[in-house]
Simulated assay, not measured.
Amino acid sequence: MNRVKMLLTLLLASIIMLPSCTQQPLPVATDEVTLQLKWSHQAQFAGFYMAQEKGYYAQENLKVKFLEGGQDVDIVRRVISGQADFGVLTPEIIIKERSKGEPLTAIAAIYRRSAVVFVAKNDSDILRPGDFLKKKVAAAGEGGAEEFALRFRAMMKRLGLDISMVEIVPYDPAYTAFYDGEVHVTPCYVTGGLIKMRKKGLRLNLIRPDDYGIRFYSDTLATTEKIIAERPELITRFLRASLKGWQEAVEDYQKAVEITLKYTRTKDAELQNAMMEAMLPLVHTGEDYLGWMTPEMWKSMVEVMSEQGLLARPLDSGEPYNLRFLKEVYRVGSQ
């Protein structure tokens, strides 16, 4: 009887112990991440789509959601409020918001050359910024269009031109008033609006802020100080997957166009292909790594905005960006 009790006791103990011996580790929950884009879906964001469709985000255990932007979308508020974890912004906006005390930080410059250009019709007498005086310029806007407004102000102020002598009207992404001749000058992207205008047969004069000393990065990936402090590994994973997608978009841009068309509302392959071709030299400059940022460039951008009185307070040029995550992705030492 005692032997039976002993066997039952051993059997019961083995049953109790069995789950702890054979239990598998619980799967790590997938992190849900939201990326706020500047504009509606288009080839401008092809690298992010590549990262999604090729499974690079999934490899980092991330489930990524894209939010479309636009002129009426307050991208900064969405990122700061936590509606989006990351945002595609311009360095001007990041610098301006940092000077106001907002906790935005750039983690990578996707477009290392600016895509912004101001255009006037070829038969006009508008060839340079000085010709904007007493003309109607579509350089006012918020959301995705704020980049144009800031670039316009910086260029005019650097040249000592009186902005009050320009009739400034809201930017129109459809360019209707410009086509009709009611607006004399409009900003656009060489990767988007310029292509659409030329497709309509317009001959244009191009005025590039870069030619007047206003040199900035363009699309820049940003997050908040809160996420940097609380989830640094999430940033590294997201950035690593995103840059992998951008690298593949550069290497196989036709595939990138094919994937982009899954997201765009208008399935215009010719337009998206032209956008990709115009975008490639802005992203892949042949310098450093894709997405890389330099302290010298940030110093220059902060100085330009400070000189033009566009900052709410004096700002150290190291405040608006953080190189930590690019260094982790590319495994490089301190520079």
Rank of each mutant, 00 (worst) to 15 (best):
247 Q>Y: 02
215 R>E: 15
239 L>R: 02
233 E>M: 08
161 L>G: 03
181 G>L: 14
64 V>C: 01
112 R>P: 13
37 L>R: 04
118 F>E: 07
147 E>I: 15
47 G>T: 02
126 I>F: 11
114 S>Y: 06
31 D>P: 02
188 C>N: 08
123 D>M: 06
133 L>E: 09
237 R>T: 08
331 R>N: 13
139 A>T: 09
170 P>V: 07
263 Y>D: 06
200 K>G: 06
195 I>V: 14
99 S>N: 03
329 V>S: 03
178 F>K: 03
92 E>N: 14
285 T>R: 02
117 V>T: 15
236 T>L: 00
284 H>S: 12
258 E>N: 10
44 Q>Y: 09
7 L>C: 00
195 I>C: 02
146 E>N: 13
222 A>W: 07
155 M>D: 05
119 V>Q: 07
94 I>L: 11
123 D>P: 04
243 L>S: 10
334 S>K: 12
131 D>N: 15
143 G>M: 07
312 A>P: 10
274 A>W: 01
293 M>D: 09
312 A>S: 14
257 V>W: 04
167 E>T: 14
294 T>G: 12
213 G>F: 10
135 K>Q: 13
86 F>W: 06
62 L>S: 02
105 T>M: 06
265 R>Y: 07
53 E>N: 09
200 K>W: 03
317 S>I: 15
3 R>K: 05
120 A>G: 14
265 R>W: 10
73 V>G: 08
31 D>M: 06
295 P>Y: 01
207 I>Y: 11
260 T>W: 00
102 E>N: 10
34 T>D: 07
90 T>A: 05
268 D>Q: 06
193 G>Y: 00
278 A>G: 05
127 L>Q: 15
330 Y>A: 13
329 V>P: 04
52 Q>R: 11
145 A>Q: 08
164 S>M: 01
68 E>F: 00
36 Q>F: 01
29 A>Q: 06
218 S>L: 01
247 Q>A: 10
132 F>G: 10
213 G>T: 10
240 R>S: 05
117 V>S: 13
25 P>E: 10
141 G>S: 08
227 I>V: 14
251 E>K: 08
145 A>N: 12
153 R>Y: 11
202 L>W: 01
218 S>V: 01
229 A>M: 07
